[in-house]
Simulated scan of single mutants.
Amino acid sequence: MKPGVFEYVAPTTVEDALAVLAERGDDTSLLAGGQSLMPLMNMRLARPEVLLDLNGLNELASWGLSEDGLRAGALVRAADLERSREVRAQLPTLVEAISHIGHPQIRNRTTIGGNVAHADPSSELPGMLAALEGSVELTSSRGSRTLPWSEFFVSVFMTAREPDEMVTAVTFPVPHGWDVRFSEMARRHGDFPIVALTVAVRTDDDVVTGLRVAATGVSDRPVRLTAVEKAAVGRRLEPSLVRDLVALSREEIDPQPDGAGSAEYRRYLLGTLLERSLLPDAAPAAA
């Protein structure tokens, strides 16, 4: 399989890349890690007139970690964050989620910006952004803007990015005072998850003062289970509450069936992952 004919452009500065997008953004595909784009081009499911290779933009390949959060340039490789002791110390659950992205060879090429911009509804990082209340920086020749995760993700493989914009950074806040847990169910480690769940809980003397439940694989974008979150606040974190939340979580989503499983199966997996996240030692709840 070979891609269709295209013009290859490899800028060395962000300014040059933005100039190309300003002129030909509607006809351009952005190449970062290439884990998704290149197979699509080889199968001719994607046929851009211009392929804009971003890998020469070294200014987007750095990241910074503060007490408030991690700001990762769009070209930071997933493996760089996974191997960082500093990131593991401040955001261990993010490292856990990254470890489920494909296999080591994939993570060596996968970029944080590319993964988020691709907006695969089953991907791990969009769900992590949703649970941590993260944001995405978009830049064009007109300037920069930062969108919260809830505004950035629109639908399956669709985001709020305009044709003349590119993702330049992704921010993952450090969840001070929250206990964050990540889990997923996939056929094999490295496969896209059937359901992935990021749960952040905050308690005071075992009473829930805050809950965030972010899921991927159950909708056309990452979703927060707001009904579950609201129902938990003010109640003690004990088996009776978790049973109620599991039942509510299965009612709150409306997943589409596909080759990986039925809607009913995804509902069951979601509730099971939620239960394991909130009460790791509990016996399985009834479906």
Rank of each mutant, 00 (worst) to 15 (best):
A130C: 13
F152E: 08
Y268W: 15
R142V: 08
T13F: 11
V201T: 09
R107E: 04
E49C: 07
A232F: 02
A215I: 00
A186E: 00
A17L: 06
H118D: 13
A231C: 04
T198W: 02
D204N: 13
L40P: 11
A10H: 13
F172E: 11
R187E: 10
A131M: 01
G34C: 07
E151F: 10
D254I: 04
A247P: 01
V195D: 11
L65R: 02
I112V: 14
R266Q: 09
A72R: 09
Q105F: 10
L197I: 04
P11A: 10
L51E: 00
A283Q: 14
T146D: 08
V76E: 06
V154P: 11
P121W: 06
L211I: 00
A232C: 00
E162T: 10
G114Q: 04
V136P: 08
P280I: 02
L147E: 07
V242W: 01
L21I: 01
V246T: 03
S183F: 10
A196S: 15
R212G: 03
T12M: 12
R142I: 09
P222D: 08
Q35H: 15
R188I: 02
P126I: 06
V136Y: 10
S140R: 11
A72D: 07
L270E: 03
F172R: 05
L248G: 04
S84C: 05
A287P: 13
N108L: 05
A287Q: 15
P284G: 10
L225A: 01
T93R: 12
A61F: 04
A231Y: 06
L60T: 09
R44A: 06
T139A: 11
A130G: 12
G114K: 00
H189D: 06
W149P: 02
P280T: 06
M185V: 14
Q35D: 09
R221P: 07
A74S: 14
Q256I: 14
A160W: 04
Q105H: 12
R107L: 04
A22F: 02
H100A: 10
T93S: 12
F152Q: 08
T13K: 02
L60E: 05
A231L: 13
F152M: 02
H118K: 12
T28I: 03
H118A: 12
V208P: 08
G34P: 01
R77N: 11
P239S: 08
G113L: 01
E264A: 15
V167T: 05
S262F: 05
T226L: 15
E124C: 11
G143D: 03
G64I: 13
Q90N: 14
T110H: 11
L138E: 00
R142D: 14
A196C: 11
G33H: 01
Y268L: 14
R212A: 11
A32W: 06
G271M: 10
R44P: 09
V95Q: 01
L57K: 00
R142W: 12
L269M: 11
V213A: 04
S123A: 15
V174I: 12
A200N: 04
T168Q: 04
E82I: 02
R44T: 07
R107C: 09
G217N: 07
A46K: 08
R266I: 03
R181T: 15
P255W: 06
S36W: 07
D220L: 13
V180N: 07
A119V: 00
D53I: 09
R221C: 05
Y268H: 15
T110P: 05
I106G: 04
T171I: 11
V50L: 07
